[in-house]
Design a protein around this nucleic acid. Sequence first.
DNA 1: TAAATAGTGTCTCTAAGACACTATCAT
DNA 2: ATGATAGTGTCTTAGAGACACTATTTA
Lengths: 230, 230
Amino acid sequence: MTKREQSYPAFAVAVDLVVLTVLDGALQALLIERGEEPFQGRLALPGGFVRIDEGLEAAAARELAEETGLRVAHLEQLASYGEPGRDPRGRVVSVAYLALVPEPPTPTAGTDAAAAGWRRAVGLAHRKLAFDHRRILRDGVERARAKLEYTTLATSFCPPEFTIAELRQVYEAIWGHPLDPRNFSRKVLSTEGFVEPTPSATTRGGGRPARLYRAGKASELSPPLRRPTT
Amino acid sequence: MTKREQSYPAFAVAVDLVVLTVLDGALQALLIERGEEPFQGRLALPGGFVRIDEGLEAAAARELAEETGLRVAHLEQLASYGEPGRDPRGRVVSVAYLALVPEPPTPTAGTDAAAAGWRRAVGLAHRKLAFDHRRILRDGVERARAKLEYTTLATSFCPPEFTIAELRQVYEAIWGHPLDPRNFSRKVLSTEGFVEPTPSATTRGGGRPARLYRAGKASELSPPLRRPTT
DNA sequence: TAAATAGTGTCTCTAAGACACTATCAT
DNA sequence: ATGATAGTGTCTTAGAGACACTATTTA
């Protein structure tokens, strides 16, 4: 950075969390209802200010634990948002993080949230949220959609052991497109390191028991699993 | 963000720029030599503090204009870096931007830079830079490499009109791999919106004149142009 | 035995990779 | 003519998409 600047303007730095899961066959995001001004009563992303001695990712992990207590399978930085005026309280730069969690137990509302809950991401796309959180949420959802194509991140939405059908349903929920079960199986099983077989099987589906798999060691998918066009 | 926080700790917010170009058949980054402490004499990314009434991208664009005056073909946010202790002067969160520029005229050193210049990205990977700038540079280079696969961003490195061979040389320089000219041509020309033909041709290569193209309207490449393995 | 879900095999077609020849300029 | 670079065509093969049948469980 430059040295010429004599003054270091004072900013507040916050982290905001786009927490996503797959629930009832749909991609859902964790939102809180704001209890105070500004934007009282409006839905908002969970988050909070970064402490002065704390790293960005550490702050995100702390807020996530404080506000949800969920087991988090994946946490990555999304982007930063810092338009002047995005927060009426002052000059706040917010570093957004994307968190992916498997099958969620109902989240407990944090001390600062009037209510917390999962809402379907598609319905949220046109709803007014606090601050610029709709934009942040949209960026997070798009990041997740895109990353399913070329990473093994879908396993982050699954329990520790899962069936191929459950993994496929993650893709279908997030992309909003049905996938051919046979072609999907072939792709997943032929991609080295995507999933590892376990000795066990489950019958929670009702029909013939399905083999259970664990997430493999690979993180990239190459060639990618392309999202159907339409 | 949370409301419970009573104090808003004061941070400085900076932008750092990973400015990339293709020069002498290699990917090169714009670096300055720091004239003052901390890290005096060490190479660093250009950048500066964000003003209190200024957006993040606006600050990046301003610094870019101030320090280089280059025509910028592409500017996107890269990531934010905010470990405590990354800047000995205090708590600084840096929002890094990635800028891609075509054939550069020699950059003019900014007022705050002892010297500015292009250095090969590969050689820089193992060199000590100021702050955590080596990490930021590495992230920027990797972003550029990856984005060549699934976007038309390579045209950002080219002049307004360019030949297919010049576009191919951008890929070869950034990926560090030779590409088959015939397969490359087929891919580029058969991808709708990648390039648009112009009526003119050039003979700056020496042999048969080559047709000139302009960047097309498409920004995504689907299916992608895969990077050779090895 | 009927219903439900799991798991596999084949054909086709698109597109990438490997490769060789012809075309058009300058000298 | 020779050298240099541009531009096109073919064969092969990997892999995606479409599609139908058999297998194993519960009710």
